[in-house]
Computed example of a mutant assay.
Amino acid sequence: MARRYVFFGQQADRELTEVLNQLWILDTNRLRPGTDYIISLQGKAGYVAQGSNYARDRARAPLFTYVNEDKLKSIETYLHFVNLLDNYEMSTGVQEEVTSEELKENRLFIDAMMETAVMKFAHGYLSNKGQSPSDCDQFKRQLYDIWFRLYHRDRSGGKDSCGFEHVFVGETKFGREILGLHNWVQFYLQEKHDHLDYKGYKARANKNTPDEDDHVLNLQFSWKGLVKPVGGVFIGVSPEFEFALFTIIFLMSTEKRTSVEVKVDEYLLELIVYRNGQCIGTSYPKLLSSNQWD
């Protein structure tokens, strides 16, 4: 039986922390703050009433002031990842139609990830734990099913969602609510094209203010006229890092909702994964602290 990583309070699992820190070390495609990208945190975001789509703008300028797009175009995983971002219907309840070209793009992305040290390590770990097949092609099919297999998010329509769309692209529900959109590349590209408006950062009570070198942030933003009161986002990490991290948590737990607290690099994080049957429902980080600890 798979070990269940289900936690309460501040107790972090040592083994999972070690695994995720190894992924962090191996993530050589992670972009460097201040060099490959520059962000401007500006003001602390305010309260948004439940069901409201109004948020006071505490950040007059965009979050991203610079991103080295040459790296997004030259690093294989980023290149194939970006190609996937326009493959989905924004609204839940609208059945997704996957073309043969989109299927090919999905597979090219998975193939590119499997060439990275990050995903090779994740595969080896999961295989040793009996959660994934040792055969590479079978593992690719498992990744495809977890992240790209379509399912119902809104029961009123056809198969309208998948883990990739929700987590990395973002969705809207009934034209009133933003779902997902936890990826920094999508955030940057949507901001660049004036579809997304950064409103400010969200800091937890009694925690120090984040800084512009942090790789994990809690953000408030509006997207196509709708407000996300707070969303956790890794900044600068590679697509394969997020895929590996959340795939491991997903497969090492049988719970509907898994919440783990881990120490990754200098960050104390809560990592949350919801499952939708055998697929990812959603997954995202929450920054608890970016300080060093005892």
Rank of each mutant, 00 (worst) to 15 (best):
N183V: 00
N183A: 00
N183C: 02
W184I: 02
V185N: 05
Q186Y: 01
Y188I: 04
Y188F: 02
Y188G: 04
L189P: 06
L189F: 09
L189G: 02
E191Y: 02
E191R: 11
E191P: 09
K192F: 02
K192T: 01
H193D: 13
H193S: 15
D194Q: 13
D197K: 15
D197T: 15
Y198D: 06
Y198S: 13
Y198H: 11
K199P: 01
K199Q: 13
K199M: 08
K199F: 00
G200H: 06
G200D: 04
Y201V: 02
Y201Q: 06
K202C: 13
A203C: 08
A205C: 00
A205V: 08
N206I: 03
N206C: 10
N206D: 14
N206A: 14
K207L: 03
K207Q: 15
N208S: 13
N208A: 11
N208Y: 06
T209G: 04
T209W: 04
P210G: 06
P210D: 04
D211T: 14
E212N: 12
D213T: 15
D213L: 14
H215P: 00
H215F: 07
V216R: 03
L217K: 05
L217E: 02
L217S: 09
L219H: 10
L219G: 11
L219M: 13
Q220S: 13
F221P: 09
W223L: 12
K224A: 00
L226V: 07
V227W: 07
